[in-house]
Every structure is written in C-alpha cells, then in structure tokens.
C-alpha cells in the first residue's frame, strides 16, 4: 500500500514512484484529482514541501497537470507515459547491469539470450 521509505533514496522520488504505481494500478484514472501535498503529508507523515516536490516531478513530466486553484490532476495519457518511462529507464538500466554481469562471468551472448528466453517460457 503506502511506500515504505527505504532511507537511501530521496523521499520525494519514492513518493512520485508510489503515485505512478497507484496510477498504473488503476487507482487513479485520467482527469481524476490526485492527492494534494497536504493530504500526502498527512497520509505519509512527511513534510508538505517534500510531498510537493514529489508531485512536481510528475507535473514536469506531464503525468500530472495543474488546474489553478483546484490542485493536480492525472493526465489522460499518464498510464502510457509511465509505462514508456519505466521501459526506457528502469528496464534499460537492468539490461546494462545484466550485460555487465554476464561479461564478468564469461557468459556468451548466445547463452545470455537463451537464459532470457528460458525465463520467459517459464
């Protein structure tokens, strides 16, 4: 449910990631109002400025949009944007690490691809 702050990553990043997951899971639809910074502060027991920072990251990426005086809302294309972002960033980073580790372990390209395919078939 709520994020368990892990102490190493900045909290505002953990908040924006948590909100993204909430949107992906369908808990917030397009054009629906998302939590305000004060609601987030209250729910997560954090400083409201930190909460605002988490919201602003998503606003900068157009995953959320601001309505003056009304708060922040989920963009129509939010889900797609988050999926793309995770694909291009998180997955890519994981692949870089896999390739590096494979080199260290002397695993050949063919072997590595085979391992991925086996995993997928399971």
């Amino acid at each position: 449910m709520f994020p368990n702050f892990d102490g190493t990553k900045p909290i505002y990043l953990q908040i924006s990631e948590w909100l993204e997951t909430e949107i992906l899971n369908g808990n917030f639809e397009g054009d629906q109002k998302i939590y305000s910074q004060y609601q987030l502060a209250e729910i997560l027991n954090i400083n409201p400025a930190t909460a605002a920072k988490g919201l602003n990251i998503l606003a900068e990426e157009s995953i959320l949009y601001k309505k003056r005086g009304l708060g922040m809302f989920v963009s129509k294309a939010a889900k797609e944007m988050i999926l793309n972002k995770r694909k291009n960033q998180k997955l890519k980073q994981l692949i870089i690490e896999i390739v590096l580790e494979a080199k260290r372990l002397n695993v050949s390209k063919v072997e590595l691809i085979q391992m991925i395919m086996e995993e997928e078939n399971e």
């Binding site: 702050f5 102490g7 900045p10 505002y12 027991n45 954090i46 400083n47 400025a49 930190t50 920072k53």
Partner: peptide, 29 residues
Amino acid sequence: NEIEDLIEDLLLIKDGKELLYMPIADLKE
C-alpha cells in the same frame, strides 16, 4: 533519522559554525 521526514531544511553545525544548510531532500544526492 527521527526528524528527517518531518523537516524541510537541514542546518548542520560543527564547532559553532554552519557546515551544511540545504533542503533535506537534496542531501541524499
């Protein structure tokens, strides 16, 4: 660790002088 979620800015002092003064959110990076 007790107060870091609660505060907005951190003022760290050492030997009677400010050592670090920044938003706590930036400290981890």
